[in-house]
């Protein structure tokens, strides 16, 4: 497990996670001429416009055709290219799951699926756009790597690193203004969990926007005399099982936190490992098998119990079970 020094979070700087992706995609496009951009009429929304402007000969506006986009990307990958295909998460992988399964994953095609507006990050667009099932869908597929950045800086690093991962990658982006957590130069290693804060009483495994709230929750818990270990699971698949097991063995109590359905997401991934190898009292902060509703990102996170107070409550609950 990688130990990470965080920025000074008392002076918050906000940046949408998708903006970090856009910068990283431009960087990797400059470094690797085989990188191709594909987008289904949401180019600026997924922050692919910087690449499009710089490399128009390597950018394909495919129209509102997510199924075709996935197959085209597969065909390009089989021809030596490294295509990044962008849309909203509810459309891709929401609409083109079969193409991702058959044309991409079954051939281990080197396609990078970049999907923005995941979770409740564009709540006011309504429930169809609020994609909460994508992590479960993508982590169920053999050959797929699933990446969920915790801030814009990490999203930039993931955009660059995805090209070096041989095979399909799902990169989940949010639209929201998100606190920058990582200092410049913080390394990112796919598949290696990041220890953001150490503690001995309980482990909080978090992903995406909820990493920041897990850190806030750990601050609150510290004031109550509870030391929480906070671990960023930026790579949900392949899961860093060794770090998960070591953390659970150390603290004996686990909470997971994510902006996704409880069914088959980060919590499910951790539970699968612990259930098989080290049964540990565990609570999950996630969306509890329901769809959203209209509202701001914050309205929805509050109403679905995804806030730092909810993480604190889950910790207190799991500690009761640990001591029982």
């Amino acid at each position: 497990m990688q130990t990470v020094n965080l920025r000074n979070l008392s002076e918050l700087e906000l940046k949408p996670i998708r903006d970090g992706f856009g910068e990283g995609f431009l960087n990797i496009g400059a470094a690797i001429p085989d990188v191709i951009g594909l987008n289904a009429d949401l180019t600026e929304s997924v922050r692919m416009h910087l690449f499009e402007e710089k490399y128009p000969e390597r950018f394909f506006q495919v129209g509102i055709c997510e199924q075709n986009m996935a197959g085209v990307a597969a065909g390009m990958a089989l021809s030596g290219k490294i295509p990044y295909m962008g849309s909203f998460a509810n459309f891709s992988p929401g609409r083109n799951y079969d193409q991702i399964r058959t044309s991409i994953c079954m051939m281990n095609a080197n396609v990078k699926i970049v999907s923005s507006h995941a979770g409740f990050s564009h709540g006011s667009d309504g429930i169809t756009v609020q994609m909460l099932e994508d992590i479960a869908m993508m982590r169920s597929l053999p050959n797929m790597t699933v990446l969920v950045p915790a801030d814009a800086y990490q999203a930039m690093q993931m955009a660059e690193a995805a090209a070096t991962i041989e095979g399909p990658v799902y990169l989940r982006l949010g639209r929201s203004e998100t606190p920058l957590l990582f200092a410049e130069g913080t390394p990112f290693v796919p598949g290696e969990a990041q220890l953001l804060r150490d503690g001995s009483h309980v482990t909080i495994f978090a992903a995406g926007y909820l990493v920041f709230r897990a850190l806030l929750a750990a601050d609150n818990l510290h004031k109550q005399g509870i030391e929480a270990q906070v671990i960023n699971i930026h790579t949900i698949k392949p899961l860093d099982e060794a770090s998960v097991l070591a953390a659970a063995a150390k603290t004996g109590a686990v909470v997971t936190a994510e902006e996704a359905q409880v069914n088959g997401g980060l919590g499910g991934a951790i539970a699968e490992v612990l259930g098989r190898k080290l049964p540990t009292p565990m609570e999950m902060v996630a969306v509890m098998d329901q769809f959203g509703e209209t509202g701001t990102t914050m309205d929805l996170n509050k109403s679905r119990n995804l806030m730092e107070d909810d993480i604190v409550a889950a910790v207190l609950h799991v500690l009761e079970r640990k001591s029982a």
């Binding site: 191709i36 000969e57 390597r58 394909f60 199924q67 075709n68 986009m69 996935a70 197959g71 085209v72 990307a73 597969a74 065909g75 390009m76 990958a77 089989l78 021809s79 030596g80 290219k81 295509p83 079969d98 193409q99 399964r101 058959t102 044309s103 079954m106 051939m107």
Partner: peptide, 25 residues
């Protein structure tokens, strides 16, 4: 055998991607 198939309507897209990649190169 170039491609995995069996779910209809997908090879057409793969073929388009191959042809487009050849154009880029």
């Amino acid at each position: 055998v170039e491609t995995t198939g069996g779910s209809l309507g997908q090879g057409v897209s793969i073929a388009c991607g191959m042809a487009a990649a050849a154009k880029v190169d």
